[in-house]
Simulated scan of single mutants.
Amino acid sequence: MRFKASIQNISTFTKLTASLNSLGPLAWLKLSDDQVCFTIIPEQGTQVWAVLSIDTIFETYTVQSAANNVINLEVPLASLNRALKSALNATSAHIRLTKKDNMPLLALTIVTTSSSNTYSAFPTTGTNNEDPFDQSPLEDFGVGVRETIITQEIPVRVLGPDTVAGLHEPQCREPDVHIILPPLLQLKSISDRFTKQALAGTKAGTASTASRTRLELAANMHGCLRIGVKTDAMSISSVWTDLSNPDLDPSQVHNGEIGIAEHPSTRMKQLGTADGRSEEGWAVVRIDGRDWGKVMSVGRLGGRVIACFCHEHALILYVYLPNETGEDESVLTYYVSSYSA
C-alpha cells in the first residue's frame, strides 16, 4: 500500500478541510487513480460527499494498493487542517502514507525558505577548475536562502474494503426546484442573524432549542429564493429574485427530453411568478439553523452552488469547484434533511 503526492493548492486544501471539520471530526478519505473523495456521515446533521479531481489539490500523485489501487482512510480533520495551516506559506509541500511504531499516519512534509545575509570573507571555491571569483555578487557576499524542512504527522486508520462497502450516498427523489444560490457567505450572514434573532426572541421554556433554530428555506422555478424563521413572537424572511434556474441536461435525465417534460421542476415552472409574491410553485424545506451555518462555511472555497429542493423532504447542495482551466470537475455534495412542519 503506497500513497504519496505533492500539493499544488495548499490554500484550497486547507479551506476544504476547515469547512468539512465544522460538520464532523472524522472523514472517510478514499484515494484512487483518478479521484480523491472526502465523505462525512455524522450521526445527526448534514452528510457530505466530496469528489475532487486530483489536480484540484495535488500536482504529482501516486496511489498503489492490492485493492485495485484504492486506499480508504479514516482521517481526523482537525489534525489535518492544523497541519495544512502550517504549510500555507511553504514553498513546497508533500504528503505520504507511512507508519510509525506500526501505526499508520499521513506525513505532511513542508519546505520553507528564508533569506540570510552574512558576509563571507573569502569567495566560494569553484568546481571543475572554475574561477572562484566568477560568481554573482550575491554569492560573493554570502547572500543566500536558508531552507527549513518540517514534517507533521497525522494519525489515521486504514479501512478495509468490507468496512466501506455498505456506505452509499443517500437516495433522493427528483427535485421539485433547482436554483443557483447567491454567494454563500452572504447567505450565511443572513441565516446566522435570523437564527440568533429567533433564539433571542423566544421565551425560555416555550419550545426546545432545536425547534427555535429551525430556518425555512424555499425556492421556485422563477429565480426566487426565500429564507425565513417563525416563532411565537416573530416572523421574518428575506427574498432573492432574478436568480438562475439552470436547464436540465437531457443526458443526465432518465428518458432524455421526455423525462425533462415529465420532471417535477418542469411542472413547478408552470406555477408561481418571477416577483416571488405568488404562494404557488414554492418548494419548502425546514433545516436546523446552526447546522446550516456550518454548511455555509464552504462558501470560503468559492465556486458555483446549485440547490435542489425536494419539497418537505430534503435539500441537496452541489458545490462546484472550478479548476485552473475554468471547468467544473470537482463537486461537493451536501445532503440536508428537512424537518416536518
Rank of each mutant, 00 (worst) to 15 (best):
L97K: 03
I95T: 04
L29G: 02
Q35H: 14
I95H: 06
D55E: 15
S65M: 10
P76R: 01
N117H: 11
T17W: 06
L31N: 05
F13G: 00
E43N: 05
H94D: 13
A83R: 09
S116N: 05
L77P: 05
V63K: 10
N102W: 02
S19M: 09
L26P: 00
T17V: 08
I71L: 08
D101P: 01
S114F: 06
I40H: 03
E74Q: 15
S53K: 14
E43Q: 11
E74P: 01
K100M: 12
S22W: 01
E43G: 09
E74H: 03
I41S: 11
A67T: 12
I54G: 05
I110T: 14
A90M: 08
L108F: 13
T14H: 11
N68S: 07
N9E: 09
L106E: 00
T46W: 06
S79V: 06
D33P: 02
N117G: 03
F13K: 04
H94K: 14
Y61D: 10
F38A: 07
A90R: 00
S53D: 15
T60M: 10
T39E: 14
L26T: 04
K30L: 09
N69H: 08
L88Y: 03
V63G: 13
H94T: 14
S6F: 04
V51W: 09
T98R: 00
A27T: 00
A50W: 05
R82K: 15
Q47E: 14
W49M: 11
N21V: 03
A78D: 05
K100S: 15
S53H: 14
A5D: 04
S92C: 10
S32P: 09
